[in-house]
């Protein structure tokens, strides 16, 4: 699929997830961009801030909401070579969560480190 990478050099894409998985469609549609974008062979990272950390929590049950539980899709990201998932430490702590509550392996980083990660990107898509 390198022909899709018209510039030849991969850019660094960061998807910033800030919203809870349900209640609004942002999390789901952000994930759709990530999956489509994976075909373009760019350098992809995901960041989870604020309520965005809830997107990754285990044991999501959406049955009574009558919306699809899309949290298993995060486990498939590895198959798309999307493996850099950064979670902001303070966001987890403020919500009484730890890394073991999440469906995928992530790197828990400080707000300071998150700022550095953002600084190093070419394209930031914030949802």
């Amino acid at each position: 699929m390198s022909e899709e990478n018209a510039g030849g050099v991969a850019k660094k894409f960061l998807y910033v997830n800030r919203k809870a998985p349900y209640g609004t469609i942002y999390a789901l549609e952000s994930l759709e961009v990530v999956l489509i974008g994976a075909a373009f062979e760019q350098d992809v990272s995901l960041a989870f801030l604020g309520d965005g950390v809830y997107q990754l929590t285990k044991g999501q049950d959406t049955k009574s909401l009558e919306v699809k539980n899309f949290s298993p899709t995060y486990r498939a990201l590895e198959d798309y070579d999307v493996t850099k998932l950064y979670v902001e430490e303070g966001a987890l702590q403020a919500r009484g969560l730890s890394e073991s509550d999440l469906v995928v392996p992530v790197e828990v980083v400080s707000a300071q480190r998150m700022a550095e990660i953002m600084e190093g990107q070419d394209v930031i898509l914030s949802f």
Binding site: A6, V33, I36
Partner: peptide
């Protein structure tokens, strides 16, 4: 068109500017 057009804009443009959300 598809979401690929957004990724392509990110690749081809010098800056991708996001409005809203």
């Amino acid at each position: 068109s598809g979401l690929g057009q957004l990724i392509e804009a990110g690749i081809q443009a010098d800056r991708l500017v996001v409005f809203g959300a």
